[in-house]
Amino acid sequence: MQASHYLSADCMDAAVTAAHAAAAILQTHALHRADLVVDFKMRNDLVSQADREAERAIIDILSTRTPDIGIIAEESGGQRGAQATWHVDPLDGTTNFLSGIPHYAVSIALIGHAGAHVEGPGRLAQDTPLIGVIYDPNREELFSAMHGIGAWSNGRRIHCSGANDLRESVIATGFPFRDFSFEHQYMPALREAIASTRGVRRMGSAALDLAWTACGRYDGYWEMGLSSWDVAAGVALVRAAGGICEDLRHRQPWPEGGDVYAANPHIAEALDAMIAKHL
Results as ranks from 00 to 15, higher is better:
residue 132 G to W: 05
residue 13 D to G: 14
residue 113 H to S: 06
residue 251 R to W: 00
residue 185 Q to G: 02
residue 6 Y to F: 15
residue 135 Y to W: 01
residue 71 I to N: 03
residue 152 W to G: 10
residue 35 D to M: 11
residue 275 I to S: 00
residue 218 Y to F: 08
residue 224 M to I: 09
residue 220 G to L: 07
residue 48 S to I: 07
residue 220 G to T: 01
residue 181 S to R: 02
residue 62 L to Y: 04
residue 163 A to W: 12
residue 54 A to N: 13
residue 94 T to A: 10
residue 148 G to D: 06
residue 279 L to K: 10
residue 123 R to W: 11
residue 19 A to P: 09
residue 146 M to V: 13
residue 39 D to K: 14
residue 258 G to W: 06
residue 216 G to Y: 06
residue 113 H to P: 06
residue 234 G to C: 04
residue 183 E to I: 12
residue 132 G to Y: 02
residue 181 S to H: 02
residue 115 G to Q: 12
residue 93 G to F: 05
residue 209 D to N: 14
residue 17 T to K: 14
residue 251 R to K: 13
residue 161 S to H: 07
residue 243 G to W: 02
residue 228 S to I: 15
residue 44 N to G: 09
residue 117 H to F: 15
residue 169 S to Y: 01
residue 235 V to I: 09
residue 227 S to D: 12
residue 162 G to E: 14
residue 242 G to W: 01
residue 214 A to N: 10
residue 121 P to V: 03
residue 95 T to A: 09
residue 274 M to W: 10
residue 116 A to W: 14
residue 240 A to V: 04
residue 146 M to T: 11
residue 125 A to P: 08
residue 192 E to A: 15
residue 119 E to V: 11
residue 164 N to G: 14
residue 188 P to A: 05
residue 67 P to D: 01
residue 2 Q to D: 11
residue 142 L to E: 08
residue 185 Q to L: 04
residue 212 W to A: 12
residue 20 H to L: 15
residue 195 A to H: 09
residue 86 W to E: 01
residue 103 H to C: 11
residue 227 S to P: 00
residue 165 D to M: 03
residue 266 H to F: 05
residue 128 T to L: 05
residue 265 P to T: 04
residue 112 G to C: 13
residue 140 E to G: 12
residue 153 S to Q: 15
residue 136 D to C: 01
residue 265 P to N: 01
residue 166 L to H: 01
residue 209 D to V: 00
residue 39 D to A: 13
residue 13 D to A: 15
residue 273 A to R: 13
residue 177 F to N: 14
residue 45 D to T: 05
residue 9 A to H: 15
residue 139 R to H: 13
residue 201 R to D: 14
residue 123 R to A: 15
residue 148 G to Y: 07
residue 88 V to Q: 08
residue 242 G to N: 00
residue 274 M to S: 14
residue 162 G to P: 12
residue 17 T to H: 12
residue 97 F to Q: 11
residue 271 L to E: 02
residue 31 L to V: 06
residue 172 A to T: 02
residue 232 A to M: 07
residue 83 Q to M: 11
residue 131 I to S: 03
residue 137 P to K: 10
residue 140 E to F: 11
residue 3 A to W: 13
residue 55 E to P: 02
residue 116 A to Y: 15
residue 79 Q to S: 14
residue 266 H to W: 08
residue 60 D to H: 04
residue 82 A to D: 11
residue 151 A to T: 07
residue 205 S to F: 12
residue 153 S to Y: 00
residue 191 R to F: 12
